[in-house]
Write a protein that binds this DNA or RNA. Structure first.
Length: 498
RNA sequence: CGGGGAGUAGCACAGCCUGGUAGUGCGCUCGGUUUGGGACCGAGAGGUCGGAGGUUCGAAUCCUCUCUCCCCGACCA
């Protein structure tokens, strides 16, 4: 029997929703497509944020904050860009509410110039940059913003696609294309490193095809992860914007030689979708599984206090372990230990569902034998064992590392086992043949492609399969297009995606 | 945004067809039992049945509108 009412096998969508609910990560709000993120869910985000922030700053970025509302006219500055977002923007048209004759509040004070709620901030940040940048001495300029954005999505799913979401958007300005390209790449590497090292999520990275690029970008680089239903999830992107935005926004600088030149810009972002990726990668039929480095709390201690004679001593024993653990740091953060002395009967299972890495059940017997009874979230919930108390404490960091490595290895195995090199159209179409409703995707395909956008569109139409990226790992390995026999520069990654 | 399904207690659902002012399980509260653990017995709290309007003596139930969620599709950095 599992801790959830639905398994991945039975109904993946329902399972995902139940993981979110039972782990108390988030709930639906009264606002369409927007969720309320609960403390356990936000705790994960805060850890992700802290880790990324450290890396961004190490690369020279500074944090700043720009307004939520953007003058509508700003969006019109870059045609390609606006087309990408026009159909999913929320617009602020009024400035106040008044009571009508029935006492009902109605919008009033129509704005001469409406605002949009930012779907991203290229425009308003670029406007500022055009004033901030005057000389080559002002470059590079590296600004990052932690913010919420809104995209009026038609189909939402907790964390994976919500109308409002939290994210960071980095925006940088450089004197040369080379430098900007280097920044784009470095940030992509920060993303994949943090995903692997903090969240135990492996990914495949590379440039997007022309049709999948960010609107207005010269090049978009992505890193794609695999969910347990074998679909691709675009976990984050880094864009080389070339001079497109600097030309439309007037981001110019005077070079050393005294010449006025347009700058090169980049932007890069990851969002709360990362939490969706975390769930989709590691969780199981008992609920959320949190890799230890990203877990809001590492360890829960569940004291068994039913034996009233020993209760006080057991509690004392637990508190001692807790404070000893809390003096230790793991992956740059003090160990976070929860002591759950509520008298609920399902404490252990509640914490399994929440995905906490380590559970300690401690009663009179542990006290007597100077042990702890430990359960690990990467193992079966029933797989618990007694360990010497001091040995547990002294090896906790190694235990957490081992868990991280186990989860990463498991995710890597899933990914590698489900990528197939496919060399003929027939095999490709059979592999991705539309199957029954709710069935898993077949996996990822690495296939040679002639680079033609029409062919790409045809495949999408026929099979619902898109090019996720042109993996760096396949770069330069030429071959023949599986569909046309024409020359191909490299294999590209095809998959069904979220 | 198109097609389909659904909204009844914290959660999962029954009741709706064939109108007569709400029910089950889990959870919650209290009391007792149990005492290596997703416990048992008893008592209890909790719902303007998503919202608005209509039909009717009477609406969870019938009709209209609307909001939200879920699934499929289109769209989507």
């Amino acid at each position: 029997m599992n801790a959830l009412s639905v398994t991945r096998e039975e109904n993946y969508s329902k399972w995902y929703l139940e993981v979110v609910k039972m782990a108390e990560l988030a709930e639906n709000s009264p606002v369409r497509g927007c969720m309320t993120i609960k403390p356990w869910g936000l705790g994960i985000w805060e850890n992700i944020k802290t880790e990324f922030d450290k890396h961004f700053k190490a690369k020279g970025a500074q944090n700043a904050y720009f307004p939520l509302l953007i003058p509508l006219e700003y969006l019109q500055k870059e045609a390609e860009h606006v087309d990408g977002f026009a159909t999913e923007t929320a617009i602020v048209t009024h400035s106040k509410l008044i009571k009508d004759e029935n006492g009902k509040l109605v919008p009033a004070g129509k704005l001469e110039d409406p605002y949009i709620v930012r779907p991203t901030s290229e425009m308003i940040i670029g406007e500022a940059f055009s004033r901030w940048v005057n000389s080559y001495r002002d470059l590079p300029l590296c600004i990052n913003q932690w913010a919420n954005v809104m995209r009026w999505e038609n189909r939402t799913r907790s964390f994976l696609r919500t109308s409002e979401f939290l994210w960071q958007e980095g925006h940088t300005v450089h004197a040369t294309a080379e430098e900007a390209e280097k920044m784009t790449m470095e940030m992509l590497n920060v993303y994949t490193d943090v995903n692997r090292d903090l969240m135990a999520i492996p990914s495949i990275s590379g440039p997007k095809s022309e049709s999948e690029k960010f609107p207005g970008a010269e090049d978009t680089y992505t890193f794609e992860t695999m969910t347990q239903e074998l679909k691709a999830l675009q976990a984050g992107t880094s864009h080389f914007l070339g001079q497109k935005f600097s030309k439309s926004l007037g981001i110019k600088f005077q070079s050393k030689e005294g010449k006025e030149e347009f700058a090169y810009t980049t932007s890069w972002g990851v969002s709360t979708r990362q939490i969706g990726g975390l769930i989709a990668t590691h969780s199981d039929d008992d609920g959320l599984v949190l890799p230890p480095r990203v877990a809001p709390s590492h360890i829960v201690i569940i004291p068994m206090l039913k034996n009233k004679e020993k209760a006080e001593d057991v509690l004392e024993y637990c508190k001692n372990i807790k404070s000893e653990l809390e003096e230790m740091a793991y992956y740059g953060r003090a160990l976070d230990v929860v002591l759950d002395d509520s008298d609920s009967n399902s404490r252990s299972w509640d914490w399994v569902r929440k995905g906490i890495p380590v559970r300690l059940e401690i009663g009179a017997k542990e006290l007597e034998q100077n042990t702890v009874f430990m359960g690990r979230r990467d193992l079966s919930p029933k797989d618990k064992k007694a360990i010497d108390r001091n040995e547990f404490v002294s090896s906790i960091k190694a235990t957490l590392d081992e868990m991280h490595n186990n989860l990463l290895a498991k995710a890597e195995t899933l990914l590698n086992d489900n990528i197939k090199k496919i060399d003929t159209k027939e095999e490709f179409y059979t592999f991705f043949a539309k199957d029954e409703e709710g069935a898993r995707a077949p996996g990822f395909a690495l296939t040679h492609w002639n680079g033609d956008a029409d062919l790409e569109a045809k495949i999408k139409e026929d099979l619902g399969v898109t090019i996720r990226c042109l993996p760096f790992t396949e770069e330069g390995k030429e071959g023949k297009c599986a569909f046309t026999g024409e020359p191909s520069k490299q294999r590209v990654l095809f998959a069904r995606a979220y």
